[in-house]
């Protein structure tokens, strides 16, 4: 078994997830090299979150393998999880802790040595996300603030792989920009980011390569130029490509039909 020394940070090998008769994810495979920001796009219910959750070990695949830094998430969970940071669309937080207490808890949970260095890192992150002066419990935070504390809880321990499910969801424009800049900086330093988002301009601006999932199947993977070549539309925007590769034309027809009687 590989031991995390290769150039691939995230690898999905024929991931399948079946819930009874429903096939949620059907043989998804892709690789993300170290230090790359990889976009994972798909419509609601396409299987993005299920794939991300299989990659981080929250859901066990029906078949297939998920590797983080070469470690199998299910047969070598401790090694894989120590290298991985996952941010859910609704961040997992403890509502009865303050932001500072929560970061302290996460740092201990991941065995980060205590000391002034850890303390300073924590204060820096709280300052960066404008949470330093928030003495209230996380339960009283807005969605955007929960998103920020969730991100801070990943960044405090510097994982080598970040799996982010809609990280800019609910953030104000300034914080969203901050997150984008942060992700670029982290990738430049060697952190691998797998980003699931609905906001196609975020994906286009940040991601070197993009995978598009539709009804549980990966329909395209590559850079925006490669996707354009694949669909034969040289001038198409990512939105056009996404709609063309998923259910775009049908949606257009639906809208036309819906508006027809009013015309």
């Amino acid at each position: 078994m590989s031991m995390g020394s290769g150039s691939t940070a995230v690898e999905a090998r024929s991931l399948v997830k079946r819930y009874g008769m429903v096939l949620a994810v059907e043989g998804v495979s892709f690789q993300v090299p170290r230090g790359e920001i990889f976009g994972f796009l798909g419509a609601n219910g396409a299987g993005k979150t299920t794939t991300l959750r299989m990659l981080c070990g929250l859901i066990k695949p029906t078949s297939g393998t998920a590797l983080i830094d070469g470690f199998d998430v299910f047969t070598q969970p401790l090694e894989a999880k120590a290298r991985l940071g996952y941010l859910d669309e609704e961040p997992f937080v403890h509502p009865h802790l303050t932001g500072r207490e929560f970061l302290d808890f996460i740092a201990d949970l991941y065995r980060m040595p205590r000391g002034p260095e850890r303390q300073q890192r924590m204060e820096r992150l709280l300052g960066l996300f404008e949470l330093a002066d928030r003495g209230e419990l996380i339960g009283a935070y807005s969605h955007g603030m929960k998103q920020k504390i969730g991100l801070a809880s990943l960044l405090i321990r510097e994982p080598s792989v970040l799996l982010l499910d809609e990280p800019t969801n609910g953030l104000d424009p300034r914080s969203a920009r901050l997150v984008k800049d942060l992700l670029e900086e982290l990738a430049a330093r060697g952190t691998t980011v797998l980003l699931s988002t609905h906001i196609l301009e975020v994906a286009q601006a940040l991601c070197r390569r993009i995978a598009i999932i539709d009804r549980g199947r990966l329909v395209a993977t590559g850079t925006v130029d490669e996707l354009r070549a694949q669909t034969g539309s040289a001038q198409a925007t990512l939105e056009d490509l996404f709609l063309r590769l998923t259910a775009g034309p049908e949606s257009r027809e639906l809208i036309d039909r819906l508006l027809e009687p009013q015309r």
Binding site: H94, H96, E101, F105, D108, L109, R114, G115
Partner: peptide, 19 residues
Amino acid sequence: GLAGSASPGLAIARKDWIV
């Protein structure tokens, strides 16, 4: 809380106490 080793077990216990 600025020194000593970090233990996940103690962290969970501490969190439970606060909560």
